[in-house]
Each structure stands twice: as C-alpha cells, then as structure tokens.
Nucleic acid binder design. Structure first.
Lengths: 248, 248
DNA sequence: CGGGGGTTTGAGTCCGTTCAAAATACGTGG
DNA sequence: CCACGTATTTTGAACGGACTCAAACCCCCG
C-alpha cells in the first residue's frame, strides 16, 4: 500500500498560525509570540501506515502533535504481551504523558493511517511551559481525561463481555469515523484491523471475529471488511444498556 | 471495630511546616509564604475504615492529601459494576485527577485504615497554581505516573492469570506493608479485604480464594487472614517471570 | 450463645482461549 | 490485468480458566 505524499498531504509545511486545530489543541493558550516560537522550531514529519513514530523505551525528548491521520499507542510488557492502550487523532498531542513523567516512552506510537505530525523538542516545551503556565494546566486537563478513560476501559474490560465491548468501541468510533446515509443508516469506516481491535479490547482476533458474527446475526450491525453498517442506532445502544427497560 | 481518635491520631492539628511528608508531596515546591496559606486554609478531617471521603459524582471542589492511613479509589459504572482502580497512602494526594479534568469526582475514595487527611479547597489550589506554576508541573508528573500505572494494570489484567496477578499485588504491597523477620521470612500485612483484592484485580472473591489456595500449595506464600508469609522471595518472583531460565 | 458479614469450598456452566485449517484480502511480480 | 505468495481474517473443535450459584465455614462482636 503506497501513499503519494502529494495526495494525502498537500500542504508540505503547515504553519501553526493557520493550523485548523489551533483552537482545539493544548497550544491554544499560547500568545502570538510563543506560537511563533513553536512554529519556527517544530519539525514536521510524515509516516505511512504501520510505521512507528516512536518506540517504547526511546528517550522521550519531546512532544508530538498529530496534524492529520490516526495513531495507535501500544504498550508491551517484559513477557512480550502487547496491548493497544489508546489512539490519537488529528489535533491531538501524543507522547506528552511520557514526556512529563519519564525519561523514556512507555508506549509505542504507530501510524494506522498516513500521518503527518509536528515534533516539538524538550527544550522548547520546557521554555513554553515556563513562559506560559496555562499550557501546563492544559496538559494537566488532558492527562486527567486520559486517566479517567484508562480507568473506564479497565472497568469495562473486566465487567463487560467482548460483544458489549465491541459495541462500545463502535459507538466511540462513530463520531470520528461514521457518517449517516440518506436512509438513516450509520456507516463507520474502521481505522483499525481486527488484530488491533482485539488488542484494544484485551482479547484475541478470533474472539473479535465471533463477536462480530453474533452482532451480525442479532441484526445490530453488518460488517464487510472495515466498513460497518448500523441500520438502527437504538439497537446498538441496547447492547450497552442491559437493564434499560427494567421496571420495578 | 472502633478506633479511638487519640490512639491512632495523637496530633490533632498537624502543621504543614512540620508535616513529615512535606518533602515528598506535591506541595514541596511551595515557598514558606505559600505553605503558610496552605497551612491556614487546609481543613483536617478523619475517617474510620469503610467511611467514604468523597463519592463518585460529588462536585470535585478541592484536593485531599493523606496524612496517615490508606485509601481505596473505586470506580462504578452505570450498571453498578465497581472496581478498585487504585490506592493512596500517607503522603499522597487524592482527588486531584478529578479536580483538574472535571467538575465532579469520577471515583469514590474510601478509608481502608483509620485515615487523617487535609482538604484543600478549589480556590486555594487555583491560587497556589497561579502563584507557583511548578506546582502544576508536580501534579503533571503525578498524573502521568498514575496513567502509566493504569495502563500497566490494564495490560496485566488482560494477559496474566489471576494467580500471577496476586503475586504482582503482593510484590507491590511488600514495600509498604511488608517486613522481614530474623530468618529472612517476608511478612506482609494486607491492607485490603479479599473482596477489595478481587475488585482491584478485576475478578471475584471466590477466584481470589482459589488463587491463594494454589499459591499456598505451591509453597509460594502462606496466608492466614490478612497476614502473608513469604519464606523465599525468589519463588514469589518466579511467579511473575515465566521464562526466567529460558536458554536459547 | 446467636447473628451477620466476609471467606472458603464445591459443582456445574459459560465465555474466551488455543490450536489448526480454510477462506479471504492484499501487494507483488509476471 | 491476471496469477501468485503472503498476511490477515474467519471458522471449527476441544480445552480451560474464571464465573455463577449455593452451601458451609469462620471470625468478630454484640
């Protein structure tokens, strides 16, 4: 699978001032002067699907900011077990958790779509933090949300069936990767392979296949490759609310 | 079970300046003036085992700092499933994650030992953060470590057997709750009930009982109530390193 | 001595895993 | 454009670890 840079990445040298994510990213608190520093010091890099942006164990010498595409964050333990612990999409930063807590990355970031991102080195991040304390608070909010998300996933993984977890994942992906057709059908284009989905839900690819099979039999969703069609969103929602119509 | 306040909490009104955790807590970056503000505004509260310090859903209107005792952090989902997502011990802060990210607590904090802690209200935390940006960075490091820990637990819960997870937990608790006898035996006093251990490892109390039974049969550790005796630490370590002596 | 919550043990079941093979998708080279 | 080799996905069958339900046991306290 080859992607020509000119196709998916028309703008070869994006400017922070005109970045479409400027208002939503953590950097939005910067004034023009500091944004200028960021703009001139950042390094733009591109990655093809499957390529690693950084690897667990690498020195965490900066923060990355996704400009386009999607990224998985994968954690591996000493026995070689691996798991996708999160994703990052356009407009979001990655690597900041490790940047703040450790000297090295505690996860591997891998492109799942063609990715373009900006690298901000440690010296600059430190300088910006000193000049604008609000930036630190921004990251504080981000990481707090990440932590809440991680603990929510932990709870889900140990209390919910794989089938229900797949339903949860579909609902989480629908905002970013879904669109509604004229007849009301929700169509989601999965950014992840079955293997990655399995890894993300803490289970095996075979189990994901079976869960998908059951969801299709139950008329919840139709899968063909990475395309998912959900005719009735309410049926999908029923999957995650077991006791919905429970009347005392 | 009744605890007389005078027994476990001799010092009724601790001063931040003489706090034994002063150098280790996030507040260590404060200068004397700010520490004085903290000292005069903080509210000291005590809790008995089983009592809730705050409940999931409460407005997160401040940060708590554990002065003595131990606390569990328990998260509950909309179906009523609950899980212990973490613990906090003397010298550590709690509630800061929710304080920064949300308007309400995303977990319930419960005393598992008699607890004394200091409450710092939102206005003061905000003021201190403004006056000393380094305080924010301190919390940033803390939360980053929490996040790393949460993701590590996630990985463990979906790749390791309950038996191995119990071994991991013993090793994690030994630093704080263990002591070594003359003959080299490690004795750990568990701060948690079997129910809480199960909840912490994402499983059921019955499964914990069985895992403990097997660990005893395997001569890894002897359990009697909340006391655990580990004769040979290496045997316990073998539990968590499956491929230790693997030679190519 | 008699509750009552927590813990342990037992038996049966289920969900997810494992191992293996077949089917499908995909990128490459002819 | 089609044929081929490889990687991913799906399906099948058997196994196993953890769950559920239930009863017995314990220990702490009243």
């Amino acid at each position: 699978m080859l992607y020509k840079p000119t196709e998916s990445m028309p703008n070869q040298n994006p400017q922070c001032f005109t970045c479409q994510w400027r208002d939503r990213s953590a950097w939005c608190v910067l004034n023009d002067e500091d944004l200028g520093r960021l703009n001139s010091s950042k390094v733009v890099r591109t990655f093809q699907p499957g390529q690693n942006i950084y690897v667990q164990g690498d020195p965490a010498n900066g923060v990355y900011c996704v400009e386009s595409g999607a990224v998985t964050l994968r954690k591996t333990d000493e026995n070689g077990n691996a798991m996708v612990v999160g994703m990052a999409h356009a407009g979001e930063a990655i690597g900041y958790r490790d940047f703040f807590s450790r000297k090295e990355f505690m996860a591997t970031a891998q492109a799942v779509e063609p990715v373009r991102l900006c690298f901000v080195n440690r010296a600059l991040v430190d300088a910006l933090l000193r000049r604008n304390p609000a930036l630190g608070l921004r990251f504080l909010v981000r990481i707090s949300e990440d932590l809440n998300h991680a603990e929510t996933m932990m709870l889900q993984n140990s209390t919910l069936s794989v089938r229900t977890r797949v339903a949860h994942l579909l609902l989480a992906l629908k905002d970013r990767y879904g669109e509604v057709e004229e007849d009301g059908t929700l169509v989601i284009r999965l950014p992840l392979s079955r293997q990655d989905i399995a890894s993300m839900l803490g289970t095996r690819p075979e189990t994901i296949s079976r869960a998908i099979h059951i969801l299709e039999e139950s008329e919840v969703a139709q899968f063909s490759g990475r395309q998912v069609r959900v005719a009735d969103l309410d049926i999908l929602l029923d999957e995650i609310e077991p006791y919905e119509a429970f009347v005392e």
